[in-house]
């Protein structure tokens, strides 16, 4: 089942499109008008989210580990990414 959501952070929209089965993320695409440095890192975040259950703790761990690599997202906080990803749960 594919679900899309739009989340508004202070500066930037985070759009999530995800496929999941039995509460587990199969595919996920994170798009929007935010900034991320380095840009290519977005692929790592998407890859690390695959196979994860759609639960706040599990998602927060992936996002926190991702930021600990030194990723910078000006005016968008890691909480925004966590909320953006979790926002698809409500649409299930």
């Amino acid at each position: 089942m594919q679900i899309s959501s739009i989340y508004k952070a202070e500066k930037g929209l985070i759009k999530i499109t995800a496929d999941f089965e039995q509460q587990e993320i199969k595919e996920i695409s994170i798009t929007g008008d935010f900034f991320m440095i380095p840009e290519e890192a977005i692929v790592i975040l998407e890859r690390n989210l695959k196979g994860k259950p759609l639960e706040t703790n599990a998602i927060a761990k992936v996002v926190e580990d991702f930021y600990s690599l030194g990723i910078i997202t000006p005016s968008v906080e890691k909480e925004d990414f966590i909320k953006a990803i979790m926002s698809i749960k409500a649409l299930e």
């Binding site: 202070e10 500066k11 900034f35 440095i37 840009e39 000006p74 005016s75």
Partner: peptide, 21 residues
């Protein structure tokens, strides 16, 4: 504005993007 735009009377006249590598 907040980060990457310039406005006059609330209307945008410049939008910017930046990166560091």
């Amino acid at each position: 504005g907040k980060l990457n735009d310039v406005t006059v009377n609330g209307r945008k006249i410049l939008g910017a993007a930046a990166t560091i590598r």
